[in-house]
Nucleic acid binder design. Structure first.
Lengths: 347, 347
DNA sequence: TTTTTTTGTTTAATCGATTAAACTTACATT
DNA sequence: AATGTAAGTTTAATCGATTAAACAAAAAAA
């Protein structure tokens, strides 16, 4: 079983020339390097006959470019990130880039470890969905001149390239939508986090209520910890529906919060939307299949992924290109879960 | 901004020794190579002072090992594969391996391209969820002595390592469960495919009916094409419920089929389980959140992923280790969607 | 004192590909 | 005939790390 890989040298020997010629020919530099016609032809023939495949490691070591990009996300088993990852993979492949994906579990330390592993593997650049408390790490990348683009989340105090959703606007839209549907006690369940994207979602919600002259009942805004999501979502909902000013609708600030929330709402046998209207961030099959299809904010996943790759590749090609900061709009997909109150069936 | 990477040579120069010594010390070979005590200490200090990070490319080129494994799956945005990918990533990381994931979209040609890209990038081995018509490619890998483990799907005619679910048994269990629940017209919607795992799911279903002396009504077994899943699932369901021997229950052979099927069942306003009982392969949040929680076959994702990594790494360490073929059992998680007929509420 | 052994360190080849520079011929120009 | 130019090819350094082999100096054995 001939298992040895074919190298440039093997071809060179077989053709009776030096490896230099082979390299020139196989890289299409026959013209500039004035390689003889017949010899070029011969080399090509031998190469395809032996099914030569260049060794990327050697190429990369020499060139300093691996044509690999690192994608750091929170968790590949979360559909939001899985979808993004797929888009990034496809888009990168179009330009001959390979993607290495790593999950950080929203932990700054894990993310940092990941970045370092990937840096040692000489990835050319990063697309990063950053975690809380990782601002200093991002700053560090910047100082080291390692090319990266932040995706979905960014740090307002840090001048970096990024591609993200306009979370303020999205959340504002959700709030206004519920107000216009006649809901008056609108709650928001978000993560307890200093991350800008989360603060923006909260800010949008607040502004929507303010603009419609609603009081900001502090009991309607719940922030739960990622690490203890299951329990704390339950507590949040319990508190929201048990006070005298109980909510008639809830906005979930992420897909994960919605899943947990809906499970509990099912347990409580609350009916959507008559007992509780729902709007959620994220998109997923669950929202279609729920007995009462869920109104959600559809983020422009394809565009987010695609654009982040484009930005990064542009930066890799020309490191001095200006900084780009791109905000995209989410789209509110209205379904029955936030049906206008006037349309509720009287039970 | 000093952006240059630190190399062995930089340390050597600073310490006033050759690169060989530095290499020995930093690889813990000071003893075997009898490096002087003080010089060893000095080298270590300088290395950590300069925050030296070895260049993996160079290491790999020299050693012929990249500590990278390629994971070829159908689609990372499918939760089944996303979950597997996560397990594989974590398990590989424990042993210092990095995973490169690629999606084949169930297309043999895409999978083949992927394999070749990854081979050129010198991955040490593969974990592969193979596609239809890719048997020849797998055979080719085998002939080239490229280490791999098949995951979730395998080819009975091909002697290879694999880790998979006992699909026959899983499907059989699902069938028996419905029979015992008093269902008499049990349908199966599967993919039209020659893949062994799919044939096994069909065989299990058939055997379950046979063993309980049911006729195999050909109208109850539908095979739909992956490329046209949405339409053909609808047609399949239409046909199954419109004949005079209409089905009272359906087994979906994959998660994707179930999603499409349930959407249509909702459209038709059929009630689960009174109009139609449901059992599905796969696991996902949807099944919990559906108004009538769905009975499903829970595949041992963690074990599948973990074991496939273990097998592969074992093979990488010792290429002459014997072939391993591992079948794991799926577990039927019973929920309301397949409630015994005797318990249905009379409407 | 001479020889052998031990200890400590350097040299140089290697992995596979790239590429500037050097080197041969052959051909053209004066 | 002498010189210049173009065409075609090879040499050798390089990327960064590893490691067998060579080497030198000091210590031990004869």
């Amino acid at each position: 079983m001939n298992t040895k890989k074919i190298s440039l040298k093997d071809i060179a020997v077989k053709a009776g020339v030096s490896t230099a010629l082979v390299s020139y020919v196989l890289n299409g530099k026959e013209k500039e390097s004035r390689v003889g016609q017949e010899i070029a032809k011969k080399i090509k023939e031998i190469a395809s006959e032996l099914n030569y495949q260049p060794n990327h490691l050697a190429k990369s070591l020499r060139s300093g470019k691996t044509h690999t990009i690192g994608l750091v996300i929170a968790d590949i088993s979360n559909p939001f990130f899985a979808n993004i990852a797929r888009v990034v993979e496809d888009e990168a492949k179009k330009s001959g880039y390979t993607v290495i994906i790593g999950s950080s579990d929203e932990k700054a330390e894990k993310a940092w470890d990941l970045l370092n592993v990937l840096i040692n593997r000489q990835v050319d650049g990063f697309i990063i969905v950053s975690s809380e408390h990782s601002e200093s790490h991002i700053r560090h990348l910047k100082e080291r001149n390692i090319p990266f683009v932040l995706l979905d989340r960014h740090f307002p105090d840090l001048q970096t390239d990024f591609v993200a959703t306009n979370n303020y606007k999205a959340s504002y839209d959700a709030g206004v939508h519920l107000v216009e549907g006649g809901y008056e006690h609108i709650g928001l369940i978000a993560y307890k986090s200093d991350m800008y994207h989360m603060r923006e979602r909260i800010r949008g919600y607040r502004q929507a209520l303010k603009d419609h002259h609603f009081d900001l009942n502090p009991n309607w805004l719940k922030e739960v910890r990622f690490e203890n999501i299951e329990k704390e979502v339950k507590i949040a909902i319990d508190e929201m529906i048990s006070s005298k000013d109980k909510v008639d609708s809830i906005i979930f600030a992420t897909y994960g919060l919605a899943i947990n929330g809906l499970k509990y709402i099912n347990e409580l046998k609350l009916k959507v939307p008559s007992d509780l209207a729902i709007v959620s961030f994220g998109q997923a099959e669950v929202f279609d299949l729920y007995y009462c299809p869920i109104t959600y904010l559809k983020q422009p996943l394809e565009m987010l992924g695609k654009t982040s790759v484009e930005l990064l590749l542009e930066k890799l090609k020309n490191p001095d290109v200006g900084m780009k900061q791109i905000l995209m709009e989410a789209k509110l997909i209205v379904r029955d879960s936030s049906m206008a109150r006037s349309l509720h069936k009287i039970s």
